[in-house]
Design a binder for these strands. Structure first.
Lengths: 201, 201
DNA sequence: CGACATGTTGAGATGGATCAACACTTGTGG
DNA sequence: CCACAAGTGTTGATCCATCTCAACATGTCG
């Protein structure tokens, strides 16, 4: 547990190693995962100064963080405009990913959603050099897939199995392999978002 | 049409008057609306420099824009760190709204989604001083509701009617009235996001 | 007046939800 | 070392919220 919902830590973080996710729980317990966080992602920009954080953040694996006091955020903008610029970049980039998730949840069928999430996470992990030539680590539980995609746990399981049966991927012991990335991309209507020089803060 | 999908205008805008929406179309024509834009909202931050915009933006009414050349964005950060700070604020704030939509589309039922969108737009318009004491303008078509909420047009129509029949609101000739805001907020599990001093760029 | 966008309504089909088991793994305490 | 609980994954049967299809109504604008 990195950031608790409706609390304010007064801190910002960069995720240095490990995986995490950002989510929100409704008063009756339903949970929506907004995004998954990988090394290099920044945490806490959405929380406006001094306000309680509208979402929680939990780690999916052992993780290390770089901590910033929120009170010095403004100093940073003044003293290092380039870093401020990078922060806006990071914020906008996370926005793009959330947009993509919204597109999935709003318009894609269950198979398409799962396919999309699998490729998307695969590409992100791969581009960070995680995993080896044929697979990347995948610390999510099926419940996480379900909560990110707005599907029930049962249907998530069945859909995941169906894709495996089609020979599109394997997912075991926390390792994801894409056996037919092209077919999966076609299925998901996936288009890589161009990731030009991503800054690290 | 303000920004075309997959093109790059090299410009940024502030929406000064009027309504607009930000969306993306899949290759088979399905469309997801990410967010609605009201006066004061900034346009174009998500589009990374020089890349084609991953989404389109269209006006819902007559609108006026303030135009910035994208090439001078970096100058602005260097010369006026405070404005850079505000831009990050605006970007993060739009992120919060998109999160909220994702929560709706992922977890809420059709009635809840419609109720949520109605209150949310009502509050935003009201806080900008649009409309009068009892109603705000509402230039959306039912198709816009449907595309924003991930519902079919037909079901959107029926659900909207149902809420009207329950006496929760009226929506005619482009004017929205909330007859029982409390009940509607309860239905939607709505919690206002605190809007502290919003900057205008 | 016709053309086109928008709104309305009913009937029937279906993707995904819900309910209910059961299997496997891991950790814990006795 | 075993017994048990808790978390996770798997599978089948049934239900229902929402989708699709198909009309028709209304309004606007040339």
């Amino acid at each position: 547990m990195i950031v608790r919902e409706n609390e304010n830590t007064g801190e910002l973080y960069t995720l240095l190693t490990g995986w995490a996710f950002r989510y929100r729980t409704m008063s009756d317990g339903r949970r929506q995962i907004f995004n998954f966080l990988l090394p290099g992602d920044f945490i806490g920009l959405q929380d406006q100064l001094e306000e309680a954080s509208p979402h929680g953040i939990e780690a999916l694996s052992a993780a290390t963080l770089c901590v910033f006091p929120r009170s010095r955020l403004w100093d940073l903008y003044r003293a290092h405009p380039a870093l401020g610029f990078d922060l806006t970049w990071l914020s906008a980039h996370e926005g793009l990913i959330v947009d993509e998730n919204l597109l999935s949840v709003g318009q894609r069928s269950a198979v398409e959603r799962i396919a999309m999430l699998l490729i998307h996470l695969y590409k992100r992990a791969e581009s960070l050099g995680l995993g080896d030539a044929e697979s990347v680590p995948m610390p999510l539980t099926q419940q996480h897939f379900a909560d990110a995609l707005g599907l029930s746990l049962v249907h998530t399981n069945k859909t995941l199995k169906r894709l495996e049966a089609l020979g599109l991927h394997t997912l075991e012991r926390g390792k994801l392999k894409l056996l037919n990335p092209a077919a999966m991309a076609r299925l998901a209507d996936y288009h890589a978002l161009p990731l030009r020089g991503r800054p690290l803060i």
